[in-house]
């Protein structure tokens, strides 16, 4: 069964379509990069899958069932800028929030949950910062806290919204090794990404998106000049300077 199956997904804000009839299925155990120009609907795709924005039509299935019943299988890393980091809480506490979905109503996260959260922090190299107030963390560290929170969700399918934006080199490395570890455990990870330079390096599979699905498949097959032109279209000048054709085309 496919971890993610999206059929004819259309999302519109005020009758202006953001996603048009997107249909795809993701294979299990792959790192998938979602790539496309600004305003292509990349984040909206994740939000629509997670039910955070209403769908105009279409359906989404996680392992063959609706998202509603499969919440516990899904981990989510929102964009770092989507929350107020002045919130009075520390890193460990934020990571513990990843356990809330498992804990259930009226109960507190217990010792086991704290252990899981600490382990998650350790994995992203943030164990020493567990007690640090979140506004005192650097951008990269905040991103790692969000990743640790997703790890604590102990999910099978992960959705990450621009985790590489504005992070330092150390964090970038930490995220990469984490992604590979998740993959090694057979988990499926879908990452919204905007840096074309690193797509081939990071992701097994690539989904090229611009309002509609342009292409989906193994990165070496899909990440071609032709497909990128189709995705970025009018912004080709930018493309030329960013990716030389020799870099994109497979020998």
């Amino acid at each position: 069964m496919n971890p993610i199956q999206v059929s004819n997904l259309t999302v519109a804000y005020d009758r202006k379509p953001v996603l048009q009839e997107v249909t795809f299925q993701m294979p299990e155990g792959k790192l998938i990069g979602v790539v496309g120009p600004n305003g292509a609907g990349k984040s909206t795709l994740i939000k629509a899958i997670l039910g955070l924005v209403p769908k105009a039509s279409g359906s989404v299935e996680i392992y063959g069932k609706s998202y509603r019943t499969q919440r516990k299988l899904v981990g989510y890393v929102p964009q770092r800028g989507s929350v107020d980091w002045d919130f009075p809480t520390n890193a460990l506490d934020v990571v513990l929030m990843g356990r809330y979905g498992h804990v259930g109503w009226f109960r507190r996260p217990g010792k086991k949950d704290t252990a899981i959260a600490m382990q998650a922090l350790d994995k992203v190299g943030m164990k020493e910062y567990a007690d640090r107030q979140i506004s005192q963390l650097s951008g990269g560290q905040q991103q790692r806290v969000f990743l640790a929170r997703a790890l604590a969700q102990d999910a099978t399918v992960y959705f990450m919204d621009e985790p590489f934006v504005g992070v330092d080199a150390a964090t970038e490395k930490a995220i990469i090794s984490l992604l590979n570890e998740l993959k090694a455990q057979g988990k499926t990870v879908l990452v919204v990404h905007h840096d074309l330079q690193t797509v081939k390096e990071y992701f097994d599979w690539t989904l090229l998106l611009n309002k509609q699905k342009i292409a989906l498949g193994p990165t070496e097959e899909v990440f071609t000049v032709e497909n990128l032109q189709k995705t970025y279209g009018g912004r080709l000048a930018f493309l030329d300077s960013q990716v030389s054709p020799s870099y994109v085309v497979q020998p």
Binding site: K47, L50, G51, L52, R68, R71, V74, Y76, P78, S82, V83, D84, F87, T89, V94, M97, Y100, G101, V103, W105, R108, P109, R149, Q153
Partner: peptide
């Protein structure tokens, strides 16, 4: 407590986990 806390800090995440 935990529902109020998470929905205050990160409403999107709160909605996503139900």
């Amino acid at each position: 407590y935990k529902e109020i806390k998470i929905s205050s800090f990160d409403p999107a995440m709160a909605t996503a986990i139900g």
